[in-house]
């Protein structure tokens, strides 16, 4: 479209023509952004990084679950050990008294 042509058009037609151009340009720009063929926007790196972040977050969650389970087991075993220690101390003292060892 030349300037002569533009001059022969009504202002509304010129406006529509420019709008079409912008529409076309936007469409092409959108495709270009999505494909990012030349890596201007690092979209491929970003997608790969997103995937890595998801995997890392899943791993963190699993480790947190494992930590929580470990804490519970540790608590239970500590209690069990404590009970044994108390019971053994009483039993030992009782046997020492019975066998007249003191």
């Amino acid at each position: 479209m030349t300037n002569d042509n533009e001059n022969s058009l009504f202002p509304e037609q010129i406006k529509n023509s420019k709008s079409n151009n912008i529409d076309n340009f936007q469409r092409k720009l959108k495709i270009m952004l999505e494909k990012d063929e030349f890596g201007f926007f690092k979209l491929k790196s970003k997608k790969a990084l997103d995937q890595k972040i998801i995997l890392a977050q899943n791993k963190i969650q699993k480790l947190l679950d494992l930590k929580s389970r470990s804490e519970q087991i540790h608590k239970g075993l500590t209690e069990k050990k404590r009970n044994f220690l108390i019971q053994n101390k009483k039993l030992k003292e009782s046997l020492i008294a019975k066998l007249e060892m003191s």
Binding site: K42, L49, K52, I53, A56, K59, I60
Partner: peptide
């Protein structure tokens, strides 16, 4: 876009440190 990528890289580094 690069700034966003840098933020994500930092987030990933933090995740690795947490792991």
């Amino acid at each position: 876009f690069h700034e966003e990528l840098r933020k994500k890289q930092k987030e990933f580094s933090n995740n690795i440190a947490d792991i």
